[in-house]
């Protein structure tokens, strides 16, 4: 197994895809980070200057101490992890497209061995992408935010943890989908459509039907919940007593409408990744490589 893992690792490092996708990831993360700080600043200025004192009253802190950056960071992480997911999606579909899968299967004890080795290597890459995303989001946010709006040390640690987790899970999900739909273009288009459009529409419909709780169990809903819930929790921990209606609004802002606790969200998405991977494995196992 160690041999196969090394082989899979070499596959990823001997082509330019990893940095070809890492650069836009970093740029996107940085952009969102910068925008987050600016928007947060704008919001805080607005809240402080106008008569929204009632809000600040029951949040129990003055607006300039609101950690509004948390919401933008959660959003930034959600959007940026699309890239590691695409990277993962190319793992198996790319090999099938280029027909290198033949040699891969000829040199592995079984197809399952190949797929597991790939999964391990892509978990590692997911973590690397996650760290890079966190780094660039943080730089963007720190550059444009007042220190009062930034999380404390514990908050940073927690966000880093969920960012890396989220990135790993998204990568794994991508690997599974790439095995399930062994076609690069098909996989990438489907994933982008689903994560950027289809599920957002679904969220709207579910909210309209007044069953927002379901959202937290959908793939995008659960992965957003992982980071979003942490952001909301961190925000609330310094914001005093908040009525449930306001909490729901905050969750929606964080992109975690109807979401569960962060670790529950993570488990739900892990289950989705597991289902997709199992499907991908079944397809790969039965496939005639001609």
């Amino acid at each position: 197994m160690g041999n196969l893992v090394q082989a899979e690792l070499r596959k990823t490092t001997t082509t330019g895809l990893w940095w070809g996708l890492l650069i836009p990831t970093a740029v996107l993360a940085l952009g969102w980070g910068l925008a987050t700080g600016l928007l947060g600043q704008f919001f805080v200025d607005f809240a402080s200057s106008s008569d929204v004192d009632e809000v600040s009253d029951f949040l129990g802190v003055s607006p300039d101490q609101w950690k509004v950056s948390l919401f933008g960071m959660a959003r930034a992480i959600n959007i940026s992890t699309i890239f590691p997911m695409i990277f993962g999606a190319m793992a198996i579909s790319g090999e099938i497209n280029r027909r290198t899968i033949t040699t891969t299967f000829l040199t592995a004890p079984s197809r399952m061995h190949s797929m597991l080795a790939k999964m391990l290597v892509y978990v590692l890459w997911g973590a690397i992408y996650g760290l890079v995303i966190m780094l660039f989001v943080s730089v963007g946010v720190v550059l444009t935010s007042e220190s009062g709006q930034l999380p404390d040390a514990g908050g940073w640690a927690m966000l880093t943890l969920v960012c890396v987790l989220s990135s790993i899970l998204m990568t794994m999900f991508g690997v599974g989908v790439g095995a399930l739909i062994p076609n690069v273009a098909g996989t990438v288009v489907l994933l982008l459509l689903y994560f950027l459009v289809i599920e957002n529409v679904l969220h709207g419909v579910l909210a309209y039907l007044e069953v927002p709780a379901v959202i937290g169990f959908l793939p995008n809903g659960s992965i957003n919940g992982l980071t979003g819930s942490v952001a909301v929790d961190l925000f609330l921990s310094t914001a005093g007593v908040v009525p449930p209606e306001i909490e729901d609004v905050l969750r929606a802002i964080a992109g975690a409408g109807g979401a569960l606790d962060w670790w529950w969200s993570g488990l739900v998405f892990l289950a989705w990744s597991g289902i997709v991977f199992a499907g991908g494995w079944a397809v790969t196992q039965a496939k005639d490589i001609t």
Binding site: N3, R10, T14, T15, G16, R98, R99, T100, T103
Partner: peptide, 22 residues
């Protein structure tokens, strides 16, 4: 119709599979 990744050098290609075979 056995494939190669066009961006990989011949040596890198062989090293990938040398690792796999051990």
């Amino acid at each position: 119709a056995q494939g190669f990744h066009p961006a990989r050098s011949a040596r890198d290609h062989l090293r990938v599979y040398a690792a796999a075979i051990g």
